[in-house]
Design a protein around this nucleic acid. Structure first.
Lengths: 144, 144
DNA sequence: TTTTACCCTAGTTTGTCAATAGGAATTTGG
DNA sequence: CCAAATTCCTATTGACAAACTAGGGTAAAA
């Protein structure tokens, strides 16, 4: 049960973009150099974020990418769901999963629902801004 | 980020064993029939649980498996760590991971630590007994 | 019009998951 | 003592996805 490199790179990419943002777009090459990630691979990942509306692209010389939303409006959950597909620990608690026939006698359904909620509570309450500010207690107000 | 079938089967296996336990061992064939899981695959899984000391085996006719601990002393976390290897969402927060060189400037380390803790809080506070009793609120006392 | 950058698709390599298969070792009932 | 039941152990397989690598196409600015 691991987060893929795609998801991890996407978060570092966006944190880099947020930290180095101005009016000027940031190129893949710049991010690739700073983060030591293959530019070609980053290209594929940022394309997902672009299609999902999290970043905006500018073509041509001096082109690159800009955040489309504010860093504090982009949650980790949004990013990971774009790159990982879903963050549910088992398929039967995925958002639009067909209701399981054996749910009424399944010994593990409450476990999975509880685990799913615990994961969502974390990733949906931490933003890219929190990552940039390296805040150890980011999102904690939601866990009281 | 998914729990493998191995982990899910192991939990169902142990819940079945706990629910059908007596002084007599339960054979793989019985569990396989009740749970509709390949007996040969179950064999491999229960072997892991045996080596980990969670169950005890009895060979020969009328043989099978017994829980080695009480059902309320076996947590979901114990089981999943035997079958999945580790439940950390990224390798750099694994229990005995070498300290990351870039940790002091890593924007995501607090996120991963927080996510790891959230997962552990669930799986380490729900037991096989809770699964058998189908308790929707099992482990909740730890999340107050 | 050339250069810089994004855009798109395809291929490759490697590893893991989820079994399947076959036989060896052990124990009990007859 | 022997046959059947059952666990034990290892190898193999097929499918699939992850993590890149590669190469050309397209748009825009200087």
């Amino acid at each position: 049960m691991k987060i893929s490199t795609k998801g991890r790179y996407a978060l570092r990419l966006l944190a880099d973009l947020a930290a180095n943002s101005s009016d000027k777009p940031v190129s893949i090459k710049d991010i690739s150099t700073r983060q030591h990630i293959s530019d070609k691979y980053l290209e594929q990942i940022i394309s997902l974020l672009n299609n999902a509306g999290l970043v905006r692209s500018v073509r041509g010389p001096q082109g690159g990418y800009l955040l489309r939303k504010k860093a504090n409006e982009i949650t980790v959950g949004m990013v990971l769901r774009v790159t990982e597909g879903t963050m549910s620990p088992v398929s039967c608690v995925e958002p639009d999963a067909p209701p399981c026939e054996h749910m009424d006698q399944c010994p593990t359904i409450y476990l999975w629902k509880k685990l799913d909620k615990a994961i969502c509570d974390v990733i949906d309450n931490i933003t890219i801004e929190d990552l940039v500010n390296e805040r150890p207690n980011a999102g904690d107000e939601y866990f009281i």
